[in-house]
């Protein structure tokens, strides 16, 4: 636990913000004001936060359909994200992308991605840019236990090793690819598979932001030092269904209850820092309240924001098109 107090506070603040954001989106889905569907990150917060604590804006992350947490952790504007999810003109993508395509290239967030296994090749490309320009940046490919089975991931692991790309494959294993258990769908072992490519890999408890932070620190250092890729197999709970309309009947309520009581990264964090006297309980409660207020503000602003002008339906397709 080598983190400075400011870093500890920041880690908790970001995790709390993601949690509140996701639970609020889940609630707002039923209001009917959010079109389409969303895939929520609640329960997985320590993963994105533990990794992003090592990253700056020059480092790139490519994300998944479950991308809100990655976006917030990478510094995307919460108001813009909420407005996007509400499909407003003020959204971070002007209402053209929605939940599954939130991106902010200036923040190094290369986009949530609607295609499972979409991120690894893109992150390899961002890592190649870093390598060819000598920027010292790294790239993170987020994918899940489902995405790890995709051919794109297999090809990317191979390419990243062959080219020694500074890329971190963050495999967030939440136990389920949609409604199918990873215990059934993933053959063998993710860490062992990575080893087959000659890529250093470790399994990390994704409810413990300290553990993620430490493992990610090793991976990022390896990348920045020109030592190539790393695989982090991060086990996390998925509190909610695969998507916002998922009745989630394939998991028992006991299992879901246990998940929340025993595998909550916010509680794990408190259990580590409060007894150790690093941060007061009250201070953390205040951060929770701030997060709630911030998300409330984002929702109010999103609801009040204008909807996109139908005349923009075919703009932004090309940079130029005669």
């Amino acid at each position: 636990m080598q983190l400075a107090r400011a870093d500890l506070l920041k880690a908790y603040r970001t995790m709390a913000l993601i949690r509140v954001f996701e639970e609020r989106v889940q609630r707002e889905m039923s209001s009917g004001d959010i079109p389409g569907s969303t895939h929520l990150y609640a329960g997985q917060e320590a993963s994105a936060v533990g990794i992003s604590m090592h990253l700056t804006d020059i480092d790139r992350v490519a994300s998944t359909h479950r991308g809100h947490g990655h976006s917030i952790a990478k510094g995307c504007d919460v108001d813009g994200m909420m407005a996007e999810i509400f499909a407003r003109a003020t959204g971070i993508c002007h209402g053209k992308g929605g939940s599954m395509h939130i991106a902010d290239l200036d923040k190094g967030m290369l986009g949530a991605n609607g295609i499972v296994g979409g991120a690894p090749p893109l992150a390899c490309g961002a890592a190649l840019t870093a390598k060819l320009t000598g920027s010292g940046a790294v790239a993170v490919a987020y994918t899940g236990d489902g995405g790890f089975n995709q051919g794109t991931t297999a090809e990317s692991l191979n390419l990243a090793r062959v080219w020694d790309l500074p890329v971190i494959f963050a495999i967030e294993d939440n136990g389920f690819a949609e409604a199918t258990a990873s215990s059934w769908a993933v053959a063998g072992d993710i860490v062992v598979r990575a080893a087959g490519y000659g890529i250093p890999a470790e399994r990390v408890d994704g409810t413990d932001v300290f553990a993620v932070h430490e493992a990610a620190g090793r991976a990022v250092a390896r990348g920045r030092a020109g030592e190539g890729p790393t695989v982090l197999h991060i086990t996390v709970p998925r509190y909610l269904g695969h998507f916002s309309g998922d009745a989630d009947t394939y998991r028992s309520s006991a299992e879901k209850q246990a998940m929340r009581s025993e595998r909550d990264c916010l509680k794990v964090f408190r259990a580590k820092v409060v007894p150790a006297g690093l941060i007061d309980e009250a201070e953390l409660d205040a951060i929770d309240a701030e997060a709630t207020a911030a998300v409330e503000g984002a929702v109010v602003a999103a609801r009040a924001a204008p909807r996109p002008d139908p005349a923009t339906v075919a703009t932004d397709v090309y940079v130029s098109y005669p």
């Binding site: 790139r60 893109l122 390899c124 490309g125 060819l132 051919g151 794109t152 390419l159 062959v162």
Partner: peptide, 27 residues
Amino acid sequence: ERVRDTPITESAFVGAAAGAAMTGLRP
């Protein structure tokens, strides 16, 4: 570095081209 042979993995290197292009190169 600028004339890069690839493994026979079109998904990886075409996707990497997209990622490299989006981050400032011109593959």
